[in-house]
Write a protein that binds this DNA or RNA. Structure first.
Length: 317
DNA sequence: GAGTTTGAAACT
DNA sequence: CAGTTTCAAACTC
């Protein structure tokens, strides 16, 4: 019920974004990071409202080339936006749901000036992680951790001067409107202040520390990876990702039963399952239809390249 | 649904 | 590296 609704809300976005991304690009041709699909490493699909889209299997060459270019400039461009800190998850896979340490941090940090971490404009907010030193945000009200490292709860924040300033303008206007969404708040409640908004399971990144096997990517490829991932089989070595990024990738989120599209740039030749359908039309994961089943961890995200591992088998439940 | 706001990405 | 422009999402009305 109530929670269900909130959940839904959240998932509505998440669903679109993660499951079947639907962009509305008009000028970027979906070949820039502006495009959510492209940024996520997936091809645009029917639901997208983009125009002059080049982010399609048909233009694979272009897509991969562009990706390469972007990555050459910023290797982390396609990496997860949120990464985990070192002391994160000692053991996840068991019950991370309630204890996800939000040591996760936004990769590059945000530069918010007006949203004060209170709106989705903030990438940290979107990722549900705390701001870090890398952030240059002003008046940050991130409850999961401010850039200076203070994770204090809301109380302290409010007192902060900077927050005050910002808060003034913002809060004044929406006073009760903004603030962290209720459903999230609830979660926070029981969790540590640094707990991520909701990526408990969604973005959980697996620390490779675990013994998870390097994982058999075959599984993914077999399963249904056929969808829209960029598989670079054409480019001999599209392996855009270097060992370096591997780290990040490792911490990718765990694909749920339904994995949309994985970016397999790793180039595993063996897994050249790319577009399975002749039409290359990609459909959203079957059972999920973004359906936010309250009881299930809807978490499914696309994974870039090497898919890490799956904690055994979704012990969640 | 149209218009505004916002901050990342891209460009210079 | 910093400033500006471009862009599409988030948000508001």
């Amino acid at each position: 019920m109530a929670s269900g609704k909130s959940y839904r809300r959240r998932f509505e976005h998440a669903g679109e974004t993660e499951c079947c991304k639907r962009c509305n690009c008009k000028k970027s041709k979906c070949l820039k990071l502006y495009c959510e699909c492209f940024a996520a490493g997936v091809y645009c699909i029917e639901p997208c409202s983009c125009q002059e889209c080049f982010n399609k299997p048909i233009h694979e060459d272009t897509v991969l080339a562009t990706r390469k270019q972007i990555e050459s400039r910023n290797p982390l461009a396609f990496a997860l936006k949120v990464i985990r800190s070192s002391d994160s998850v000692p053991e996840l896979g068991q019950e991370e749901s309630s204890k996800t340490p939000a040591s996760a941090r936004h990769k590059r940090g945000c530069n918010c000036k007006k949203s004060s971490f209170l709106k989705k404009y903030c990438e940290c907010y979107q990722g549900g992680v705390g701001c870090s030193i890398s952030c240059r945000c002003e008046g940050c009200k991130n409850a999961f951790g401010r850039k200076d490292g203070s994770f204090i709860g809301t109380e302290a924040e409010l007192d902060e001067e900077e927050a005050e300033a910002c808060e003034k303008s913002v809060a004044e206007k929406h006073q009760q409107k903004i603030e962290i969404p209720k459903n999230e708040e609830q979660r926070l409640d029981s969790a540590l202040p640094t707990t991520p908004l909701r990526l408990s399971r969604q973005m959980v990144s697996l620390p490779f520390s675990s013994k998870n096997k390097p994982l058999r990517s075959s599984v993914f490829s077999i399963g249904g990876s056929s969808s829209g991932l960029y598989t670079s089989q054409k480019l001999g070595k599209p392996n855009i990702l270097h060992p370096e990024s591997k780290f990040e990738r490792h911490s990718q989120t765990v694909p749920e039963d339904e994995m949309p599209e994985i970016l397999q740039g790793d180039g595993s030749p063996s897994t050249g399952v790319k577009t399975a359908s002749p039409n290359s039309k990609r459909v959203c994961p079957p059972n999920s239809d973004f359906g936010p089943s309250p009881g299930r961890r809807t978490g499914r995200k696309l994974i870039l390249q090497s898919i890490p591992s799956f904690p055994s088998l979704t012990p969640q439940h």
